[in-house]
């Protein structure tokens, strides 16, 4: 019995060999740690929890249902492939399971997508958004679009709902990945928050209501908050300023880069939903600033959530 307790014990510090000698997390020949099915099942349960929790706001958003059947099929397909790639990356930094190779990251990504699709399908049927007299294309489209936030939620489920976190290992991975990893996490964070806002009509409406002065003010506010969130507030995911880096170089390297990512991700998401079709460039710029606001906050806080 005591042995078994240890088997389930979290956060055994798989990178520390000293600990591995007593821990039940086992090391194979290629220095791979094995995970038992029970532990995987716990991770899977958390993934379902995450999929429901993070997917819920959009599950109950009307525009998501109609976009599911009305948005361009090619764009929907692209969005799903993009999501799959993001899932592989997220699995590397924080999945519902500790991973050790690209193969396992890919397996985790597919599992998370499966959890996202299953959760979305079940909930959409329960909410009567999907009924069985609909055409196949309609049903699959609704589930497919909804599975994007749900599968990201599934991937984040372990971190957010689990108590067994290996913060040290996660931090090490983030350190190893360096600047590129930092940028990837910003893309993931921006995508998740932008995706939560972009389907609503309000994004376009707000852009129409705003004067250029409003847009400029919102852009400046986004930049200030982005900078403040990442560097000034002492929270756990805080990024250290590079050694000897001045305010200006930090601002250029992280804040401006982050805002650039937020705007690009916003453009991609708006284009996916067909919100930019036939719209004047000036109006698109307004929409980008509007959606860039949540996207930049997502980019800034990605380190906390992931």
């Amino acid at each position: 019995m005591p042995n078994e307790r240890r088997n389930l014990e979290p956060g055994s510090g798989f990178l520390l060999k000293a600990k591995l000698s007593w821990s039940a997390v086992r090391v194979g020949p290629a220095n791979e740690v094995t995970v038992t099915s029970e532990r995987y099942a716990i991770g899977l349960a958390r993934a379902f929890g995450g999929a429901i929790l993070f997917g819920l706001p959009l599950l109950m958003t009307m525009e998501m249902w109609s976009l599911g059947f009305s948005m361009g099929r090619g764009r929907l397909l692209m969005l799903m492939m993009f999501t799959l790639m993001m899932l592989v990356g997220l699995s590397y930094f924080s999945g519902f399971e500790k991973t050790f190779s690209l193969k396992e990251d890919a397996m985790d990504a597919f599992a998370a997508f499966g959890v996202g699709i299953t959760t979305s399908a079940l909930l959409l049927v329960t909410l009567a958004v999907i009924t069985f007299d609909m055409s196949w294309g309609d049903m699959v489209g609704r589930v497919a679009l909804q599975s994007v936030p749900a599968s990201i939620g599934a991937m984040l489920g372990r971190k957010q709902l689990g108590d067994e976190q290996d913060m040290k290992a996660e931090e090490e991975r983030k350190q190893e990945a360096g600047y590129a990893g930092e940028l990837f996490l910003m893309v993931a964070g921006a995508l998740f928050l932008a995706f939560n806002m972009a389907p609503t009509e309000e994004m376009v409406l707000i852009a129409f209501q705003m004067t250029p002065w409003h847009a400029l003010a919102l852009g400046v506010l986004s930049l200030l908050l982005l900078h403040a969130f990442v560097y000034s507030i002492g929270f756990s995911g805080q990024e250290n300023r590079p050694e000897g880096g001045t305010f200006v170089s930090t601002f250029l390297h992280f804040t401006l880069a982050g805002y650039g990512i937020a705007l690009l991700v916003s453009l991609y998401v708006l284009w996916s939903f067909g919100r930019t079709d036939g719209v004047a460039v000036a109006e698109i710029a307004n929409m980008l600033v509007v959606l860039g606001f949540p996207a930049s906050l997502g980019a800034a806080t990605a380190r906390l959530v992931v």
Binding site: T34, R39, Y40, A41, L44, E97, M107, D108, A111, G114
Partner: peptide, 8 residues
């Protein structure tokens, strides 16, 4: 674990 293969 087999469950991982199944889920994936």
């Amino acid at each position: 674990p087999w469950l991982e293969w199944l889920a994936a």
